[in-house]
């Protein structure tokens, strides 16, 4: 198949950047979206031009490194799919595909389609863990955990930290990301001990970093490649109220 690409090119964080048009030809429908960009990059290198910089790593939809805003959707139009798992058979021959970086104040563009997502690490560092040290913990089976809660915690923990929720949200809010971590621990007895401090610290950090406010549009849930539920946001709100009320 042949495609017309409109790709955001930006040489450096301070560069103004602009869209550049490219044509790619004879792309196999079995190729992945990133392989299609690989092919474009090979051609650019052959021609002596600068290849398109984009983030990617595991290419099996779990590391959360790949991003890209494709035709108006983070990770492209296919539901529950990361960009690396998106395949060209989902596009039409001759289609124009617009490829942009994530856009949010806390995710500055570094180069072309690469953005800096270290804000997410900072949020986790502010309290997204259970403060146990290595060794000296009880036997794994000493705390029985209700299967339903364990499953819900796993649903929340499936977050890959890719930032699609922020990219999708019209307010660039990080609530889905933060609430997934808060929920995972709020649902488990081990996590309840620090629950109050955790939610307060993580929300404060999220605000400080300049993410927007959640207005319950639920775009994040629709676009999340791991289908994390907005019920987690409600759970975080609940946890926050509990924490504030003591």
């Amino acid at each position: 198949m042949d495609l017309k690409l409109k790709i955001w090119r930006q040489a450096s964080p301070t560069d103004k950047g602009q869209f550049v048009d490219y044509d790619v030809h004879n792309i196999s429908t079995d190729a992945s979206f990133l392989e299609m960009i690989d092919i474009l990059n090979d051609e650019l290198i052959e021609k002596g031009e600068r290849p398109v910089a984009f983030d990617h790593d595991c290419r099996e939809g779990i590391c959360g490194m790949c991003s890209l805003y494709i035709n108006g959707h983070p990770h492209g139009p296919e539901a529950a799919t990361t960009t690396c798992q998106l395949h060209m058979r989902k596009f039409k021959d001759g289609e124009t595909v617009v490829i942009e970086p994530w856009r949010a104040k806390p995710f500055p563009v570094i180069k072309d389609l690469i953005v800096d997502r270290s804000a997410f690490d900072e949020i986790i560092q502010s309290g997204g863990y259970i403060s146990v040290t290595t060794g000296g913990v009880p036997d794994g089976n000493s705390i029985p955990i209700n299967k339903e809660h364990a499953d819900l915690a796993m649903d929340a923990a499936a977050c890959i930290g890719c930032g699609a929720c922020v990219a999708a949200c019209k307010n660039a809010s990080a609530m889905l990301f933060v609430s997934a971590k808060v929920s995972q621990f709020a649902l488990l007895p081990q996590g309840k001990i620090e629950a109050h401090d955790r939610v307060k610290a993580m929300v404060a950090k999220m605000d400080e970093l300049g993410f927007g406010n959640c207005t319950n549009t639920y775009a994040c849930e629709a676009e999340c490649p791991k289908e994390i539920s907005v019920a987690n946001i409600a759970r975080m709100n609940r946890e926050f109220i509990k924490a504030k009320l003591g």
């Binding site: 409109k6 108006g72 300049g210 927007g212 406010n213 549009t217």
Partner: peptide, 28 residues
């Protein structure tokens, strides 16, 4: 809240699809 939300995305997208599941949330 709205001003903060505008500030949190200084540069918008060229193409943005309809993603909101609560349709009128977009225009509050």
């Amino acid at each position: 809240l709205q001003i903060q939300n505008w500030v949190s995305r200084p540069k918008g997208y060229k193409k943005r699809a309809w993603m909101e599941q609560s349709p009128f949330s977009k225009y509050m």
